[in-house]
């Protein structure tokens, strides 16, 4: 009887979408969304590729593999990004220790010089390797930086307005996030300037459930001021691999951990 009870509880906890009720606490929605977007599993691995298209239609490509490990859900994270394409960046490795309560630590390994360069945490809203994705889009914007208001919850979406607490650190005035009520994945995020004109938009184009986690497989960021955009696709996504802590170190920059990159 007791076992049945536990079994039911686990079932309920593991699949909240089955009995999803509409949430009204905006901070709870944001927390769940942050968890779903950036903290799936205790660790994870994915291959990714981006196509960067400028306003003239010129294309650039990036291909890389990401390894991630969480120190705690909604807490600090370790991340490694191994670039394989284009050929002039092959072997370049980007390492981040994402810190919730202070600046991230960031390193870049340049294989041609055997150089481990430390990068200042600086502006997180700087292009990630030339893409329309910012560093912050890749590693997640800290929810503590915005004030949120729930505007509506219909059509399976929570529509939330977010206003940055410090406008000097961002290039927008506010943004609107449309979050799936079942998966808590933000399906569309639109950034507006001070004239309330949409200037930038992130869209999720495809998701898949992998190991029980709803995972973004294809997304896109458009610069609405000139119609340039970047699309990002993922494949080979895996969670809870048991990646050791010591993989996230300087050693992996010079000697990429093959067992996790296949």
């Amino acid at each position: 009887m007791k076992n049945l009870f536990w079994g039911l509880s686990i079932l309920l906890l593991a699949s909240p979408s089955l009995f999803a009720e509409t949430l009204t606490d905006v901070n709870q929605i944001i927390q769940k969304s942050n968890l779903a977007s950036y903290y799936a599993g205790d660790d994870g691995r994915t291959q990714a590729r981006m196509i960067i298209v400028d306003s003239q239609g010129n294309k650039q490509m990036r291909q890389f593999t990401i390894l991630r490990k969480d120190k705690a859900d909604l807490g600090d994270q370790e991340m490694l990004v191994f670039f394989s394409r284009p050929s002039d960046v092959n072997g370049t490795v980007f390492r981040v220790t994402k810190k919730v309560n202070s600046d991230d630590d960031r390193w870049l390994y340049l294989p041609a010089l055997d150089l481990v360069k430390r990068i200042s945490a600086g502006d997180k809203r700087t292009s990630f390797v030339g893409a329309h994705f910012f560093y912050e889009d890749v590693s997640g914007r800290n929810p503590a930086e915005d004030n949120f208001t729930l505007i509506s919850s219909d059509n399976g979406l929570y529509t939330i307005k977010a206003i940055p607490k410090d406008l000097t650190t961002v290039e927008f005035s506010w943004y609107k996030a449309e979050i799936d009520t079942k998966t808590f994945i933000p399906m569309k995020v639109t950034y507006f300037n001070e004239k309330d004109e949409a200037i930038r938009q992130m869209q999720v184009l495809d998701t898949q459930v992998i190991d029980g986690y709803t995972t973004v497989m294809h997304s896109k960021i458009i610069d609405l001021t000139n119609d340039s955009f970047t699309e990002m696709q993922f494949r080979g996504v895996q969670y809870n691999l048991g990646i050791e802590d010591n993989i996230f170190s300087e050693r992996s920059l010079r000697t990429p951990p093959k067992q996790w990159l296949r």
């Binding site: 309330d196 004109e197 001021t225």
Partner: peptide, 15 residues
């Protein structure tokens, strides 16, 4: 040639 367009009137349409 980044022409900052006025998006105020038809944001959604443009998107």
């Amino acid at each position: 040639t980044v022409n900052k367009r006025d998006l105020s009137s038809d944001n959604e349409k443009k998107i």
